[in-house]
Amino acid sequence: MNIQPYLIPLAAVQFEEEIKKSTFITYLAHTPSIEDAKAFVDSIKQKHSDARHNCWGFVAGRPQDSMKWGFSDDGEPSGTAGKPILAQLAGSNVGEITAVVTRYYGGIQLGTGGLVKAYGGGVQQALKLLQTIEKKITIKLNLTLDYALVPLTQSIMAQFQAIEVEADYSEKVAFVIELECLQVEAFTQTIINKSGAKVIVAHNDNV
């Protein structure tokens, strides 16, 4: 499992341009899964059902995970739309992103080179407008401790920006916390050292 953080879109983006009387509208959106990506494509197709083409590409996971890539020329000549769209997305190092480029045909053919430039260029311009945030990869841990250790534990959780997901105050206190994967080792060492190994740390299986 790759635990390094990566960039994802902060908000949707739209870019429109006219090339030889054809209108190209590029949409970018945050799509955390392949299902989300396909749903976004469908929503744009419905919005522009009167357009000649709604071509698309998506990177539905980590930027380098080509198992979650997809694209379509949607009736344009093979290789002139979907691949240039995907190439721009793959080169952006942004994950969980889908691009749909809607084309309203203006009566002048662009040729294969012109189409590649139009579809790829639209996504390139839209990416310049895109704001991104860093997605941190997190994991859940179970903590078991005595009541006296709650203040210490909560202080260390705050130090490592761990989030309390669940808390069970029974005979002992049981916390389920969510923490960035890169911090797990340091967090575990700190809490064991400061509590004299009285806080039990275990991985949560319900991830």
Rank of each mutant, 00 (worst) to 15 (best):
M1F: 04
I139F: 00
A99D: 05
D65F: 05
K172T: 15
I44V: 15
L86E: 09
I156W: 11
N2W: 04
K68T: 13
S72W: 01
Q161E: 12
F15T: 05
L152K: 10
F15W: 09
E171A: 12
L152M: 12
T132L: 04
N206C: 05
T102G: 06
I156D: 01
A167W: 00
H203P: 06
F175Y: 15
T190R: 15
L89D: 03
L28P: 02
F175V: 07
K47G: 03
E17H: 10
N2T: 08
M1T: 11
T188L: 10
Q161L: 10
T102D: 02
L182Q: 14
I177F: 05
E164N: 09
L110R: 03
V59M: 04
I108M: 05
E18S: 13
L143M: 11
Q159T: 14
F160M: 12
T144H: 11
A87Y: 00
K117M: 07
V116T: 11
Y27M: 05
G82C: 12
T31H: 03
L145M: 15
F187A: 09
G107V: 06
G70T: 06
V101C: 10
L130M: 15
G106I: 01
T153D: 08
Y27W: 11
S72G: 06
E166N: 13
K198L: 14
Q183T: 08
E16Q: 15
A158K: 15
A148P: 03
L10T: 04
G57A: 15
S49I: 07
F187T: 06
P84Y: 03
L149R: 04
G111L: 12
I156E: 09
N142R: 12
L127M: 09
P5I: 13
V100P: 04
I133T: 11
L182M: 13
V165P: 01
L149F: 08
K38C: 07
Q125H: 14
V207I: 13
V165M: 13
Y6T: 09
G75N: 07
Y169A: 10
H203A: 13
Y147D: 03
E16P: 05
I137T: 12
A81Y: 01
